[in-house]
Design a protein around this nucleic acid. Structure first.
Lengths: 131, 131
DNA sequence: ACAAGTACAGACAAAAAAGTAAGGTACCTA
DNA sequence: TAGGTACCTTACTTTTTTGTCTGTACTTGT
């Protein structure tokens, strides 16, 4: 098992929380599984083709170990595995919502700031050209 | 500038949000600055002696660039720099609250589960010894 | 026979984040 | 002249995380 998880300092419960959803794709996965519940491994792979299989499995396993998703194996052939969120995972998804909203707002602001800076730079350049 | 920030995929605004508070100590710093506002560099260093000066500065600078904290330099000697949270930073801190609560609950559950597992293992061992 | 689909596992390498240790400025005190 | 305070900067190393690629076991379709 290649898990050690960079230990986060935990005053308030943020350390443990970030340890659980800190992975690069975990929040996204939780969100997608919550949407398309229950969904299969291959489905997730198709939904997010940018994730490598290794990371997909690794994250799924860690999330399972953390109790936020449930994994059910059907002994069929070809194999079939279904993932769904646990009640705890659903709560986490909910707790993540305000953060997501903040992120969107922040992103907009950052874009505006960048546009503003570009405009200012242009104006400054014109001013300099006029001398 | 040694910042590239592991790019997080962003459906919903979680990507950008985690990019901002994903650093090992950032959430903690934001929280502490919010508490003891305004506070000086040395103060933060004393409050959290485990952070190396390098990470402290690096995180503070990134958070400043992200617009969640404000840095004010007083041209005195010895130098004096004060950090405070911006309105945007305060909002983030608020948005982080539910996540923190989830983290605490989750931690408790995890501890109970571990205790339960240990008890079960003990019982099983006793059973085996008798059997 | 051979490709394709399912759900993984493992070795290895690259990239990113964090840590360590030393130095640098600018002024003050002994 | 040495040492102290406050706030950093830089170079270098280690640790952690992510990515690439190859392989498994079994069945179905051509």
């Amino acid at each position: 098992m290649e898990k050690k998880q960079r230990k986060l300092p935990d005053s308030c419960g943020l350390g443990p929380a970030l340890a659980v959803i800190g992975g690069k794709w975990k929040a996204l996965l939780l969100w997608q599984i919550h949407q398309a519940q229950p969904c299969r491994f291959g489905e997730l792979k198709r939904l997010q083709p940018e994730i490598s299989e290794k990371m997909l499995i690794q994250h799924l396993r860690e999330m399972e170990a953390d109790g936020i998703i449930h994994r059910e194996v059907f002994h069929q052939v070809p194999p079939r595995v279904e993932y769904s969120v646990t009640p705890e995972g659903a709560e986490l998804d909910l707790a993540l919502a305000p953060l997501g909203e903040w992120g969107e707002k922040h992103q907009e602001r950052a874009e505006k700031a960048k546009a503003g800076a570009a405009r200012a730079a242009r104006t400054a350049a014109e001013g300099a050209a006029r001398g």
